[in-house]
Amino acid sequence: MRNALVGAEVHEVDVATTAVPAETVRRARRAKLKAVPTGIEHGTVTVVVAGTPFEVTTLRHDVVTDGRHAKVRFGRDFAEDAARRDFTINALSLSRDGTVHDTTGGLADLAARRVRFIGDPTTRIREDYLRTLRFFRFHAQYATGPIDVAGLHAAIRERAGLARLSRERLRAELLKLVAAPGAAATVAELSHAGLLLAVTGAVAEPGRLTALAGRSDTHAHDPMLRLAALLVRVREDADNLRERLRLTNAEYARLLDLAALQSRLRSTDGPLDRRAIRRLAVDHGAQPVADAAALLAGCARPALTAGGTAALAALAAGTEAVPSFPLGGADVINAGVPPGAGVGRVLARARGLWLDADCPLDAETIADLLTQSLPARDSH
């Protein structure tokens, strides 16, 4: 409803009903639709229509909340159901005849592009402490003016509640926040309020996120890259985020690589030319090198020559292929080296010579590099 009114992409349609879950399941099956009790204790049944899932939830009101979970009682009052939600723009509904129902002032807030809690912000946050991060995330996604002061003050007062949330919930919400259109300014607010430190245990660099968000390339909207811009410079930063946000192995590996690349790029003495960029791409991949360079944009190091800049753009875009080392263990054995550890040592020497020679691929040069890498033969 909210997205449709502002012309944004609608990702899902949720349905509210006065029917209790068992009745929802019965009616769905009578209509020969698949019904999955995905959140039955909270009144939610997922009904699959032509392969598309729709969450159908019984009207309800909270009986008990503890900041993480709520015990609910099913009801029949749409206004009461709307009043238990978090923000006014999330409490809008549409009936089958096309009538928009707004009992909390959501339409006015949506028109003004502002995000406000329904009722007392402190009460809403204490019902579910994740609403603190959701407040900033929705502001970054939908608002255009200053952040709501009452909501901000309540979020700061209730910051201790963030420690009660699971790391998985914090990770999911933070990644959505940094990917939002207004992430740069909003994350700066989150950081200045001390809330980002409470979530991540790290001192953030909002300026790096601002610089990355200002780039025109679509890769700059990648949430993990934005998280790295905000919080990752060295390996210890990646280690910290893995623990605080329970990152997946793939996410952690990517942040580690970005940290290593930033350290490597910052340690370069002279400007990076085409050969240096190609070498980095062979070691780390073209896109990670481009990502790390983007994270360090505006820093004194690394500096790129014109040729290095052109090579980086071509490799990242795929218009120039990343060179692939053409030798393998069989080549070394065929050259007379017995199987064993010596094969690896020869390959390592050959690869170093190949990189120094700017990754040639012609057979004659490759054969010469292999010969240079072979162990010296005893003339006696």
Rank of each mutant, 00 (worst) to 15 (best):
S93R: 11
L165K: 00
A108P: 06
R167L: 11
S93T: 10
P146A: 15
R137W: 09
A155L: 08
G119E: 07
Y142D: 10
H101S: 11
T132D: 08
F87C: 06
A150C: 10
V149C: 13
P121D: 03
D77H: 02
H153V: 13
Y142S: 08
D120A: 11
D120N: 12
R164N: 12
R157W: 11
A111E: 14
D86R: 04
S95P: 02
D128K: 13
A91K: 01
R134K: 12
R164A: 13
L130Q: 05
R159P: 04
R134M: 14
N90Q: 08
A79T: 08
P146N: 09
F74H: 14
R96C: 14
D109F: 04
A150S: 13
V100A: 14
P146T: 05
A154D: 04
R96P: 12
R164W: 11
D77M: 00
G161Q: 03
L152M: 15
I89A: 04
A143F: 03
V100S: 10
E127Y: 06
F135E: 04
A155H: 02
T88A: 15
I125K: 01
L133V: 02
A154S: 07
G98V: 00
R84P: 03
G106I: 01
R124I: 00
A143H: 00
R114W: 01
D109K: 01
T104C: 12
R159N: 09
A111P: 09
D81S: 14
F138L: 15
R134E: 12
G119T: 02
R159V: 10
N90R: 05
A79D: 10
F135N: 02
